[in-house]
Design a protein around this nucleic acid. Structure first.
Length: 665
DNA sequence: TTTTCTATCAGCAAC
DNA sequence: TGATAGAAAA
């Protein structure tokens, strides 16, 4: 008898969980128990005797992958050593580490994130003699990305950057590095050119699942399609497609039906998450979209409380409002801080709200934005590790060669670069050539500096690559390079900042420690660690730290999550829909609406929305209008709190007191 | 030649 | 507000 509690599934869910053979398309509305269906389905496969090694589940975020794995582990009580649950990108890395040598890279290649990529574009562009205004790396970066993911081609794009693109590509190869888009693109290339490699994967994976299918790009679809035989289950919801700017293409659903004949479609339409009020609001909004599959999402959770819309004077009043609400709900409804999610459209909006939290002493975590791993001090340390593991990684070498300051400045680097360019070699090789050259153009002093840098890296390499205890060794390395002294010196005038950065590094080392002591982790080497962290952009390093804290994040980052109480802050025209999306055409407005829909449907019990009347933008204060989407919420579900005009402090306190009263009843 | 200081510019979403 | 490029100072 199966130990799985199938009786807790509804009829449709049950169908999805027990249909293991053949292609299926699961249309899963918001809150319809999608994650549950996927985890039960995997557990069911395992119970039916399908070996772990044959199962491949692809997700969008690390968070989702991790959560899925944990839930399957709970359900089955098994060790999951051979089960592959990973993000598309992590799966790509896995393939490339195995076989990238066939494409001319070495298997210890570095993975460049956007910052690294833009840096490389800038360097390459300068060499090619682009002027500063033609070298908008942000734009060029996204152009290149769009080319790589197959959204644009050179016919339609701006040709003047074509040469730069080619140089950029050969730069990557020279430095033994790949960028994020390559993590999907190169495996496809590998499969095309070396069918025997593809066959390995086709032989292994017999059951494939894809989560958030509406957000997969054409390339990701192709990667999946290359491996898949016919037992493929894709799960998605076209109303929650919010990544078209990253190449998501909901026409993949049509392609899927074409490429896999006999698709069985299963619709999950019962929402288990939200109150009827919240769901009706969401449905009211999304029904304004023309381009969608019609759906009848319903909830049996009772009508619940009305949605409240506030119009604070400015962003700091908004922050105060959110803080007050959270604190009064903690008392009146015995909520804990972990019950709240505060959602925003753009990372720049976090500041005011964070300040509010700090002032009110409310514990919180921010995810997305300048994530932990994007912080300068963390990137520096990671750059050391990357150069230690891959000497030819020029971008990371440049980052650290003079950090902390070693007196190796622009002129010296130019000379190194010159040699590298002439010899078509990496900077590392070029430095070594300079050191051992008899007649060198460099001053002796510089030679000594460079030599000690090279020796330090080489020494660290032999230390870090052998044996156990990575965390300890990293700490020793940080000491060896005197990084802490460097911080103190650089931030003399701002001791707080220095202390903060100091702590971040401690944090990093602790996280390495927990990582290597995790019993589920069999490879605790440096490569494995670097492998893992390049793909983590959100701070899902410590799960337990999330408990008891208010979550502050972008709407994009909130996908797949839920909170008992949700605040949507900054619901203003120009933010949602974002001003940029209006410039680009009306398809984008529909995506903005879907984004707003995703935000609403994160809420279980109660939803607050706020739209400021004025907001600081850059240096000046701008008048704001509420988002037009607010009018699309049926009026009977909403309590509007109109602005009172200028409110004196006394009055504000009174209003607060009465609000608190209302919630203590 | 390298470091430090000052002025200027620009800001959507993420693996 | 932060990052970055160019100018002045060491």
């Amino acid at each position: 008898m199966s130990s799985l509690a199938f009786n807790t599934l509804n009829e449709k869910q049950h169908e999805a969980v027990t249909t293991l053979e053949g292609p299926i398309l699961i249309i899963a509305g918001a809150g319809s128990g999608k994650t549950r269906v996927i985890t039960y389905r995997i557990a069911n496969m395992l119970e039916s005797g399908i070996p772990q090694s044959q199962i491949l589940a692809l997700t969008f975020t690390n968070k989702a992958a991790k959560e899925m794995e944990e839930r399957v582990k709970e359900l089955t009580g098994k060790k999951l050593q051979n089960l592959t649950i990973s993000t598309f990108h992590a799966f790509g890395v896995k393939i490339l580490r195995q076989d990238i040598e066939m494409l001319g890279w070495r298997s210890n290649f570095s993975i460049y994130d956007d910052v690294d990529r833009n840096q490389l574009i800038k360097e390459t562009g300068r060499e090619l003699g682009f002027t500063a205004d033609a070298l908008d790396v942000y734009k060029i970066g996204s152009l290149f990305s769009n080319i790589k993911i197959g959204r644009w081609d050179w016919e339609s794009a701006n040709d003047q950057y074509r040469k730069l693109y080619e140089e950029y590509q050969s730069g990557l190869k020279l430095y033994n590095a790949v960028d994020f888009d390559d993590l999907i693109g190169l495996p496809i290339k590998l499969f095309r050119e070396f069918p025997e490699v593809l066959q390995k994967y086709r032989d292994r994976y017999k059951y494939i699942m894809v989560d958030e299918f509406q957000d997969t790009s054409i390339q990701q679809y192709l990667l999946m399609h290359a491996i898949a035989d016919r037992n493929v289950a894709v799960v998605g919801d076209d109303d929650q497609s919010i990544y078209s700017w990253r190449g998501a293409n909901y026409e993949n659903i049509l392609m899927f039906e074409r490429d896999f004949p006999g698709v069985r479609e299963i619709r999950l339409e019962q929402n288990y998450r939200s109150t009827e009020t919240i769901l009706a609001a969401a449905n009211g909004v999304i029904s304004n979209n023309t381009n969608r599959k019609d759906k009848a999402l319903w909830s049996g959770n009772g009508s619940g409380k009305p949605i409240e819309i506030f119009m604070p004077e400015n962003e700091s009043a908004e922050a105060d409002f959110i803080c007050e609400m959270i604190q009064s709900l903690c008392i009146s409804e015995k909520r804990s801080y972990g019950d709240f999610g505060v959602l925003i459209r753009a990372n720049t909006l976090t500041r005011a709200i964070e300040e509010g939290f700090l002032q009110a002493n409310i514990p919180y975590t921010v995810s997305g934005g300048t994530s932990f791993f994007q912080r300068k001090e963390i990137k520096d340390i990671i750059s050391y590790l990357r150069v230690i593991s891959n000497h030819d990684d020029d971008i990371n070498l440049l980052r650290i060669i003079n950090t902390p300051r070693r007196g190796i400045g622009r002129k010296t680097i130019e000379q190194i670069n010159e040699i590298a360019k002439n010899q078509k070699c990496s900077l590392w090789t070029s430095i070594n050539a300079l050191i051992s050259a008899q007649e060198s153009p460099l001053a002796d002093k510089m030679k000594i500096e460079l030599e000690s840098f090279v020796n330090m890296i080489t020494e660290q390499r032999s230390l870090l690559l052998g044996g156990k205890g990575l965390a300890k060794k990293v700490r020793a390395m940080v000491d060896t390079v005197n990084y802490m002294d460097y911080l103190m010196q650089e931030y003399q005038k701002n001791e707080k900042a220095a202390r903060f950065k100091f702590l971040n590094i401690e944090h990093l080392i602790t996280s390495i420690d927990t990582w290597e002591n995790n019993p589920d982790n069999f490879d605790t080497g440096l490569y494995a660690y670097l492998n893992r962290i390049t793909l983590i952009s959100r701070d899902d390093m410590e799960d337990d730290s999330l408990k008891g804290k208010v979550s502050l994040m972008t709407i994009h980052a909130s996908k797949g999550l839920e909170f008992p109480v949700v605040f949507i802050a900054g619901a203003e025209e120009g933010l949602i829909p974002h001003a940029r999306s209006l410039e680009e055409g009306d398809g984008n407005v529909e995506e903005e609406r879907r984004l707003f829909y995703v935000a609403i449907t994160r809420a279980r019990d109660k939803l607050f929305i706020s739209a400021c009347r004025k907001r600081r933008k850059m240096q000046n204060v701008v008048d704001c209008t509420p988002s037009p989407f607010l009018d699309e919420i049926p009026a009977n579900l909403v309590e509007y709190h109109e602005p009172q005009g200028e409110v004196s402090d006394d009055m504000a306190l009174n209003i607060l007191a009465s609000m608190k009263n209302k919630f203590t009843m």
